[in-house]
């Protein structure tokens, strides 16, 4: 068996990424800022494969907008064998990164439009990679609405960001919890679908981006359809199990589409041929 030099780039080999910030958001989600050896060069809505060598690898959404420096931001929920180990890592520790992978969002699909973001739970993390660049060129868009829901007040992510975004002119932020669970809460109570019925929507002008738990999509899509938003103006960011990011391992396949290459962001109207999608 011959071993080629480590300098050759192999599609399966991760690059080192050092943790420069790790902040607890909730009991099980932490915000990470990583420094890579060179800029990631990603688009909004793309993802990376995160490694702890010796433990394994898992797909993680990129949570920051495109940037020119070598910084990568992500939110990691402590849920699997890998993320439990990552949760114990501290500033200065090194993780492994492959990517970026996937299609992502194209800002041109949103420019000149009213934009609605519907984020359920951890879905805010990937959508932040789109919200940031949109707000950075605020004048290119019409009215911007961000609906962000989570289970309980103590499960809310990016509280400071949500507050800062709500102070930008022409940006409405609607924060919801399923239940206050007897905790202090200054937002609304209900599901992310509830505000859609009362929003001031011009279906001719609106483009929406959705990301949340699997159960969320169908109901948000129904609520948007009821307001006359056409399917080709709705973008969904889907979650699937992914092992390679290269369109090979098969785990993320939705009918004949490899979610890791053709997705994870899809135009809703393109999902009609993929009955396994929603």
């Amino acid at each position: 068996m011959s071993v080629m030099s480590a300098s050759s780039e192999d599609v399966f080999v991760p690059r080192p990424a050092r943790i420069i910030e790790a902040t607890a958001f909730t009991g099980r989600e932490r915000f990470y800022r990583l420094a890579l050896d060179r800029p990631l060069g990603h688009r909004p809505g793309q993802f990376v494969m995160l490694s702890v060598l010796g433990i394994g690898e898992a797909p993680i959404s990129i949570s920051c907008g495109p940037r020119e420096d070598n910084i990568l931001e992500m939110v990691i929920r402590e849920i699997g064998s890998l993320t439990q180990v990552v949760a114990k890592r501290v500033v200065g520790d090194v993780l492994g990164i492959r990517g970026p992978f996937g299609s992502g969002f194209d800002l041109n699909d949103f420019r000149g439009r009213d934009v609605l973001f519907v984020c359920g739970g951890l879905g805010l993390a990937p959508l932040r990679s789109l919200i940031q660049p949109v707000l950075a060129e605020r004048e290119q868009y019409g009215k911007i609405t961000i609906i962000s829901g989570c289970r309980t007040p103590d499960a809310e992510l990016y509280r400071d960001d949500l507050r800062a975004w709500s102070e930008i002119e022409g940006v409405e932020v609607i924060r919801l919890v399923d239940s206050t669970a007897h905790q202090p809460w200054d937002g609304r109570v209900g599901l992310v679908t509830a505000p859609i019925a009362d929003l001031d929507i011009d279906p001719e002008r609106l483009t929406a981006a959705l990301c949340g738990p699997p159960v969320m999509y169908k109901f948000v899509v129904m609520a948007l359809a009821a307001r006359g938003v056409p399917a080709d103006q709705i973008f969904v960011d889907l979650e699937r199990r992914m092992r390679c990011g290269l369109g090979k391992c098969g785990h993320c396949q939705i009918n004949d589409a490899y979610c890791c290459v053709e997705g994870p962001v899809f135009r809703l109207s393109d999902l009609e041929r993929l009955p396994e999608a929603l």
């Binding site: 080999v13 010796g54 090194v94």
Partner: peptide, 19 residues
Amino acid sequence: LFNFVHLADGSFRASPVYE
């Protein structure tokens, strides 16, 4: 797919294997 070694500075070196 590759061998790896954790280095003293916390980083790692990975060497892909090709037969």
